[in-house]
Computed example of a mutant assay.
Amino acid sequence: MPMNAADIERMIKQAIPDARVTIRDLAGDGDHYAAEVVSESFRGKTRVQQHQMVYQALEGNMGGALHALALQTNAPD
C-alpha cells in the first residue's frame, strides 16, 4: 500500500522536530514523491548524512511502501 504525503511529512517531523518539510507527489500514484527538508540539525553534516537522517526517519519504508523519493536537504540560510 502506498504512503501518502501527510504520513511522510509526519514521520520526518517526528524524527527531526525543527524540520520544514515540503512534499510533492510527482506522479499522482502515491509512490513517487519529492521532498524538501530544511533543518538546523543538518548544519555541518554532509549531504549523505542529511539524507541518511531523513531515510532513518522513514523507518524502513523506502523501497517498500515508498517506492521513490527525490530528496533535497539543506540547513536554513
Rank of each mutant, 00 (worst) to 15 (best):
E40R: 06
E36K: 15
H67P: 02
R24V: 05
P2R: 10
A57H: 06
I12C: 00
D7R: 07
G28N: 02
G63N: 02
V48R: 02
L58R: 10
A68R: 11
M1W: 14
I23C: 00
Y55K: 09
G44I: 13
H32D: 09
Y33E: 03
N74C: 13
R47L: 15
Y33G: 01
P17S: 06
T22P: 04
A35H: 01
V21M: 02
N61D: 06
G60D: 00
M1T: 12
K13I: 12
A57F: 11
R47I: 15
I16Q: 06
A6H: 09
T22H: 05
T73E: 03
E40I: 12
Q56M: 08
G44M: 05
Q72D: 08
V48E: 00
R47E: 11
S41N: 06
D77I: 12
G28E: 02
M11A: 02
K45F: 08
D29H: 10
A75P: 11
G28R: 03
D25I: 11
A5Y: 07
Q52T: 14
Q52K: 14
D18K: 04
D25N: 03
M1F: 13
K13A: 10
D77R: 05
Q72P: 09
E59N: 15
M3L: 15
D31A: 06
T46F: 15
A70T: 14
R24W: 00
H32E: 06
A6L: 12
Q52L: 15
A35T: 04
A27V: 08
F42I: 09
H51I: 14
N74D: 13
M62E: 00
R20L: 15
V21K: 02
A70N: 03
D31R: 06
V48H: 03
Y33R: 02
I12H: 00
M1S: 14
D18V: 15
T73H: 05
G28V: 08
G30L: 01
I12D: 00
L58M: 12
A75N: 06
Q56H: 07
M3Q: 11
L66I: 15
D31N: 10
D25P: 04
G44E: 02
N74E: 13
Q50I: 08
Q49C: 06
L26W: 09
L26S: 05
H51M: 12
A57W: 09
Q49K: 12
D25T: 09
E59H: 15
N74F: 13
L69N: 01
A19F: 11
R43D: 08
D77G: 05
Q50F: 05
A6Q: 11
V21P: 00
I12K: 01
P76Y: 02
G64D: 13
S41R: 12
D77N: 03
